[in-house]
Amino acid sequence: MTPLDKVEGRAIPFGLKNVDTDVIIPAHWLKTTTREGMGRGAFEAIRKDPENLFDSAEYKGAPILIAGDNFGCGSSREHAAWALGDLGIRVVIAPSYSDIFSGNAVKNGILPVVLPQTAIDRLMEVAATDPVFVDLEHQTVTTQFQDRFTFEIDPFRKMCLLEGLDEISLTEKSDSAIDAYEKQLDADRPWMRPAA
């Protein structure tokens, strides 16, 4: 996973709320056995409009996406994160996310920044003409004007993103704890194993 620290550039002022993962990547794009090439299907219905933001001269390849409440709701498809990543998006800024999507984003090196709606409104305004700066180390979103918004992030997620860590290798360090749990479970509740 590519580490992420500072991201600066144009931010797509998308702004819609309850953007579901079927909108981010429709189901027919899920018929694949690889993670690659999902960007072509990203926001497919919206991009049928030739005037859409994603393919406009200003925002094509922009690294930041600004959205409304409950971004990434619905299906658990990680293809949504793969699609955003393939479009070149490294940061999403929204007031809230679905729980599953925000986890999927982090696991694919995409930072889900949570900011209040007032900050979103201001960033939407700036994004119309100017770039936005995101600093994960210092947990800030700034503009070339006076704007400075700080955001919260789970320290583990922050570390994974900053260092581009593979979570499975980290968990494998807890192997003996997992062994111990399994032994205890078999002793306490042997019936939990599926009956033969």
Binding site: S75, S76, G103, K107, I168, T171
Partner: peptide, 23 residues
């Protein structure tokens, strides 16, 4: 019971665990 992404599917296949924040 809850839905997970593909990276988590791989994580569960490999470790039978998930690292989670309590809800």
């Amino acid at each position: 019971a809850f839905g997970i992404g593909t990276s988590e599917v791989e994580h569960v296949l490999a470790t039978q665990t998930l690292l989670l924040q309590p809800s």
